[in-house]
Simulated scan of single mutants.
Amino acid sequence: MSASNYAVMFADIAGSSSLYKQIGDEPAKKAIFSCLALAENIICAHRGIVVKTIGDEIMARFDDPNDAIEAARNLQMQVDQNFSFDGAKMAMRIGVHYGPAILENNDIFGDAVNTAARMVSAANARQIVLSEPTVHALAQDLCALAHRFDFAKIKAFKESVPLYLIEWEATMGNVTTLMPVSRPATAESKRGFLVLQFEDQKHAVTADQTDYTIGREAQCDLVVPSPFASRKHAWVEYRRGKFVLVDHSTNGTWVRTGDNQDIFLKREELPLWGAGAISLGEPLENNVDYVIKFSL
């Protein structure tokens, strides 16, 4: 089956797990449902197609990357202006990549999807992060709103690639000025590695590797057959001198850190340090068979 170019968008609600604690389960569920419904309406209004929703995240595809960016900017504006529940302000994180992908039964597959997922994982609340191919495909007026702010390693590319933020606020008075960023150090200048131990096997993740994937799917670098794990549950990347665990799952990830604290991640990331443990999709105290140990 041949691939065609699509703009793939991921948009998720930043800090949704803390929203449940702030305003309670039912109000939070209603707020998230309303926010995702708004996202779906805006995507469709900009000639996009919703591929799926996963928890607090929506995935969409567009034939034209300009439509994807206009949808993303409109969504950020609408959420920023209209979504506050019981004093809790809601915010979105959005990532977009434009490139070849395979469409099958309204689902979409390929490196374009994985790269778009990396864009949203790099975004903070109220940000839209784009890949460089996306920026190059935009019309001049939208391209002028994009600013490079960082680099990241992505499997689809041989070298670290630049990441771009795109302006969306009606007034830029509250926008932080972005400092120019330098290209990260080459792999030869990096030191150290992360050891992941699952069952009786140890896996070394080095600084020069691209995303090291963990999940239930056979194609993952570390396969964990837990029924609570997502197919591609999380990944580890080396960024600015740190090994960072990035969750991209349905059920979340529990991490016992080097200082013996338990931290829950859901569509969030955490730098790893010392020695600890990782549990996919269930708390560590409930996990008997599928605990991953790590050490640095």
Rank of each mutant, 00 (worst) to 15 (best):
A3W: 03
Y6H: 09
A7N: 12
V8G: 12
A11W: 08
S16N: 01
S17K: 03
K21P: 01
A37L: 00
E40C: 04
H46P: 01
H46E: 13
R47E: 09
V50E: 08
K52M: 04
K52E: 09
T53L: 00
I54T: 12
A60Y: 03
A68E: 13
I69H: 11
I69Q: 04
A71P: 13
A72D: 08
R73V: 15
R73C: 15
Q78Y: 13
Q78L: 14
V79R: 08
N82D: 12
K89W: 02
M92F: 07
H97F: 05
H97R: 06
G99F: 14
F109I: 04
A112P: 09
A116R: 11
M119R: 11
A122F: 05
A123E: 04
Q127Y: 12
I128F: 12
P133K: 12
T134G: 14
Q140R: 13
A146P: 12
R148N: 12
D150W: 01
F151M: 09
F151Y: 15
A152S: 14
K153R: 15
K155N: 14
E159N: 14
V161S: 12
P162W: 05
L165P: 01
M172Y: 07
T177S: 11
V181G: 09
P184E: 03
G192A: 11
V195Y: 00
F198P: 00
T206A: 09
L222Q: 12
L222T: 03
F228C: 11
S230N: 01
K232F: 12
G241M: 07
V246W: 05
V246A: 02
V255N: 01
Q261C: 04
E269Q: 14
L272S: 09
A275P: 05
G276M: 00
V288A: 05
D289K: 10
